[in-house]
Amino acid sequence: MDRDQILELLTDAAVEVMDVDREIVTADARFVEDLNGDSLSVLEILEILQEKLDVDLPTESFDGVSTVGQAADVIVKIVAERAA
């Protein structure tokens, strides 16, 4: 699964969790400042991605992540490690 596909899943989840318009969920968008999120929103999004990808996404792997693109990078890495 490539980064674009992960971004697509993240966008779906962000729209659902934070009730925002799809257009503003760009790779550079910050979950809290730009997307109406809070400290729990990212955890909710990761929960949805865990289900969709059927892979564990440990919270601590996302320390320091603030944008959609950064989250996608971490997920791409975790998925690749699992496949390896």
Binding site: L40, E44, E47, D56, T59
Partner: peptide, 12 residues
């Protein structure tokens, strides 16, 4: 499915 699949929203 294990502890990693417990919702972070469970407590609140």
């Amino acid at each position: 499915r294990g502890p990693s699949r417990v919702s972070p929203m469970l407590v609140p």
